[in-house]
């Protein structure tokens, strides 16, 4: 069924063409929003319509010189980096433990560890709001960092766990039998081998926090508004072209994350190919 070569009959050719046409339409559907919003951010006019009156960078200029937008970028970075670090530490430890732990409770523990991904955002947000408000963790960076870490850690557990599946635990035992202290063995033997999984877990974790808005809506005070939160109010109130500039900047970050991820995946596959 691969390519035109094996297509024998006219009906198969028609089916294949229909697949291509339908897929093309879906690809257009998938890419249209991103492609449509990009040029608008470079418009010299203040209406979000085509044709563009001219080219300018005024909306980027406005974005950079707006205290509100810049504060939101700073908040997103603080919360994103802090929760990434926390979730990488917690998630990697847990993935290492889960890889060696044999118990009938393992599926249950795994389900608990992964559940923040499945539970609807509003439920997590409401629960956290009730729980954190009495102890003063709403309207604080620490509250948001803790909440985002809970959401992001499952991705680290998944990606590091996937790398560990192809990892030979005897290597760690060999290091120990040769006299390596546990932490030294981890740093020199385990860490280099699971690094690709750890890095993509970290990227996933950062992207999760960077894109999260429901918990921020409930828990952030005016001081902690993140970039998506600022966009949310922007869309609610009126969409100014400054938002399109913010959108393009966010998309650029996504593209960088995606490209890094893809590079890591390829590297990982190469490594796997070499070892087995």
């Amino acid at each position: 069924m691969s390519g035109d070569a094996s297509l024998r009959t006219a009906s198969q050719r028609i089916a294949w063409r229909a697949t291509i046409i339908l897929s093309t339409l879906v690809f257009i559907f998938l890419m249209a929003p991103i492609l449509a919003i990009m040029p608008l951010s470079f418009s010299s006019g203040s209406y979000l319509t085509y044709p563009l009156p001219g080219f300018s960078l005024r909306w980027y200029d406005e974005f950079i010189h707006s205290a509100r937008w810049m504060a939101s970028v700073k908040n997103s970075m603080i919360i994103g980096v802090a929760s990434t670090v926390l979730s990488v530490v917690l998630g990697t430890l847990a993935a290492l433990g889960l890889a060696q732990w044999k118990s009938r409770f393992k599926p249950l523990v795994l389900a608990i560890v992964l559940s923040p991904v499945v539970v609807p955002g509003v439920i997590t947000a409401v629960g956290l709001y009730f729980f954190f408000a009495p102890i003063g963790l709403t309207g604080s960076y620490s509250g948001l960092i803790l909440a985002h870490t809970a959401l992001a850690t499952p991705f680290v557990v998944i990606t590091v766990g996937a790398t560990l599946q192809s990892f030979d635990m005897n290597l760690a035992r060999a290091a120990a039998s040769l006299g390596a202290p546990p932490f030294y063995a981890f740093r020199r033997v385990i860490l280099p081998l699971i690094l690709p999984g750890l890095a993509s877990g970290a990227l996933f974790a950062f992207a999760t926090s960077f894109d999260e808005v429901v918990i921020v809506l409930f828990m952030a005070g005016p001081e902690q508004r993140t970039l998506p939160r600022e966009m949310f109010s922007g869309i609610r109130e009126n969409i100014s072209p400054t938002i399109t500039a913010a959108a393009v900047i966010l998309t650029t970050v996504s593209v960088i994350l995606l490209a890094t991820m893809e590079g890591l995946r390829r590297r990982n596959e190469r490594l796997k190919g070499n070892s087995g």
Partner: peptide
């Protein structure tokens, strides 16, 4: 070895108890 493995998972479980399971249980109680 099993004990050591479990002790690596415990920090995350304790963390989730505070930041996820506890809050959800609290919501159910409400």
């Amino acid at each position: 070895r099993q004990f050591k493995a479990l002790s690596l998972v415990l920090p995350l479980l304790a963390f989730l108890l505070f930041t996820f399971l506890g809050p959800i249980a609290g919501m159910l109680w409400h």
